[in-house]
Nucleic acid binder design. Structure first.
Lengths: 259, 259
DNA sequence: GGGCTATAACTAACCGGTTAGTTAGTTAAC
DNA sequence: GTTAACTAACTAACCGGTTAGTTATAGCCC
């Protein structure tokens, strides 16, 4: 409603917002695959099917466009996590659900974790003003809530004696590394690491690994894994297969099961 | 000895090799902090205190220089790991020592893991020919040996039912992520995350996390951690401190211990 | 050993393709 | 006819790479 007057809410409105979204989408892809320095504004414009000057119509410069992309992605992830953190469940389940949600967010578009990695690597060793903003706005609050869940679980005796400031980066590492090392994984064990089956296996393995590292009682870990829908781990019984897959050429003669 | 004849082994030899090394060193730093695309050859030359043209005297182009740096770093890490893998100790201890060695390698110069991360992120989602070479030459053999240790540990009942192809990337993620997210960490919990004390604490936490995730019997995990010299974890007893440190500004009213 | 040449190590100055960003304008909705 | 949305064409700076040259050391012949 309120069709006219005031300023210009829907003005011409035939696209505009869509165009902006298209630019952001194209920029996301370009920045994620090439990094900020490697990204070409021409390529972004081409992918978004707009004239390059339009990028500068909507955004001050390349850096601002990058900032908008980053903001969108990080806020998306943190909102998702906050949703999970608001669930009325035990710390153990909540934490595993968080890890699962993080994994799902990452696997929903493998560009996202790569974009985040690029952002982390930008600027030498200390945070740029831009990254400081990200850290304060997105990471800090959500990580605070996550830390509270960890402390709660430790106090309740459900978790091992964990330090949240250490445990959070460790868990993130487990989730994220698979995606940031995709090219290497592709090269070491051949085949697409992003098929639904592979992703499902990875997801289960991540949750299993984290659960084992977090819970005091292994039985409780298993119980919670089942509760969040993670099937029992395949592991070394079939590890012959996984192992062969890891090194198809150079099997060390021994270890030669049948198949 | 053999002062002359033949070709020109030590020729003038007053520096040359040192100059080359200086260039590689400067390039390592520049590539690690800016990425390949972001790295400036001018900056490398300046840092190495040589004329830019000298880069092209020793290396074909920027890409070749980058390749030389990468090769040096990755081969260094893999040699270190192979040394540990050759030790005549039980799988559990060997694995923890590997993780420790990886961490030490990374922390010896925090530029190294960042350089590696940059390399992983280069080129969209599948491996470049260059990265394929790295994967085949460095990763594959060492990872094969690591996988064998894992399988051995699982068969012996020392480890949980683990799939090496999943466990290896998870462990690497735990080690590496701290370093690749240094700027964020700096911004979230203030203070230098690279002080000897902080690094020691992180190292212990990483080994503790991995041990808990790997070993079947928690008691065995503790035993092995002690054996490789990891002190007992601080954890949530002091977690009040760590937690406050994680979110100095925005404590949620509850949880308000004294300090 | 003195003068000569060859060559490794290194540099100042330059070049031109690439690329972020601009300008001056066109189109079309209201 | 005003203004939001959009574009073709341009520009200035940046940056990888080259060129043409300098310095210095080692070898060599007499």
């Amino acid at each position: 409603m309120s069709p006219s007057s005031l300023k210009s809410p829907p003005r011409s409105a035939r696209s505009a917002e869509q165009t902006r979204a298209a630019i952001l989408q194209a920029a996301l892809h370009e920045f994620a695959s090439q990094g900020v320095a490697g990204a070409r504004t021409d390529a972004i414009a081409r992918a978004a099917k707009v004239n390059k000057a339009l990028l500068y119509y909507y955004f001050k410069d390349k850096e601002a466009l990058y900032g908008a992309v980053i903001d969108q992605v990080f806020s998306g992830l943190m909102e998702t996590l906050d949703g999970v953190l608001a669930l009325p469940v035990a710390p153990g389940e909540k934490l595993l659900r968080c890890v699962g949600a993080h994994f799902d967010f990452a696997s929903s578009s493998p560009m996202l974790p790569r974009l985040m990695q690029h952002e982390m690597l930008r600027a030498g060793l200390q945070a740029s003003p831009h990254l400081k903003h990200i850290a304060q706005t997105y990471f800090r609050p959500t990580f605070g809530r996550l830390a509270a869940v960890l402390v709660e679980g430790v106090r309740a005796g459900e978790f091992r004696n964990l330090d949240p400031a250490q445990t959070i980066p460790s868990m993130i590492g487990v989730v994220v590394h698979y995606f940031s090392s995709l090219p290497v994984i592709t090269a070491v064990l051949e085949g697409d690491p992003l098929t639904p089956e592979r992703l499902a296996r990875r997801r289960a393995a991540v949750l299993d690994f984290v659960a084992a590292a977090i819970f005091r009682d292994p039985a409780r870990a298993q119980e919670m894994l089942q509760r969040v829908g993670v099937p029992l781990q395949a592991g070394a019984v079939q590890a012959g297969a996984a192992f062969d897959e890891l090194r198809p050429g150079s099997a060390p003669a021994q270890l030669g099961e049948k198949r």
